[in-house]
Amino acid sequence: MSDVSIGAPGSYVQSQTIQAKAPPPSPTSRPWTPTRIVGTTWLTLWIAGGLGIVWFLLNSNSVALVFGGDGLLPVSLTHNAKFLTKYGEKFVSGFIITLKLVGLSMLLGVLLSIPMTFMRMSKNRILGGIAYGYVYFFRGTPLLAQVFLIYYGAGTFRVPLQSVDLWWFFRDAWNCAVLAFTLNTAAYQVEILRGSIENIAKGQWEAAAALGLPKWVTFWKIILPQALIVSLRPYGNEIILMIKGSAIVAIITIYDLMGETRRAFSRTYDFQAYVWAAIAYLVMVEALRRAWDRIEARLTRHLKR
């Protein structure tokens, strides 16, 4: 198609038509800029590290390929997964304990955070002050210190607690952990809820009042649905923070995923314990994050343009 084929041969049109511009050259390979070199090296290191971890796990379970078997295939897989057969089940039970702890304290945290949010937002100075102090304390101190304060600190009040028959509750590490986690997450949830409720434009309240809706209907049907949508993302982050934070209950002798890991490591000095735990936590957090993104996209689909 190099020759111009517009108009009659030798005509004015043909003689004056400009040759079409040649197409751009086909894309050649990208140049090796410094950023590309750094990026490729870094990525290669990650892949090498990942393969190294896989090799380490295979090696510590003595997984090997044996050639020349008399089975269906000339290759068979042998392994000596002593660690996994001994501790695998415990890891699963620890995983379930972690989920239980997080689920239970999130649920109780939601229940506790709702009245606390009302207190925090109330005009009453005393109620507001109590809620403010509560939130400030639990957000300003480490979770580890809170768990210790409740679990070990209860020992100081042993006699009074025994007299009101509550000692059985504080004697058990599990109860203390659930209590500490509930109080902690509720404090964060109060701030999430308060922030999202206060974020709703004042006009929403005024419009509802103009329609003659009572205050609680306005709150329940107009403000809260909008506030919850705003708070979806922080709630998801809070669950992830709780899953990660729950690892510290291993210190007060609860055998959650981290506790089982520590126990297995202290008995075998086999580092694969920590590697398996890392994989489990990463998969759990990443799966939750992605699932939460999906849920959020689904619930806010009417807001997308």
């Binding site: 800029t33 950023t35 590309r36 750094v38 990026g39 490729t40 870094w42 990525l43 290191l45 990650w46 899953i243 990660k244 934070g245 729950s246 690892a247 510290i248 291993a250 981290m258 890991t261 920590y274 735990a277 890392a278 936590y281 990463l282 957090v285 990443e286 994050r289």
Partner: peptide, 23 residues
């Protein structure tokens, strides 16, 4: 703008934001 660099940095963030600090 380099995709490999972005991917490598994102792997870093995913790992260290996903692992519990204690672990």
């Amino acid at each position: 703008e380099e995709p490999s660099l972005r991917a490598a940095a994102n792997i870093y963030t995913t790992i260290f934001r996903g692992l519990p600090e204690l672990l």
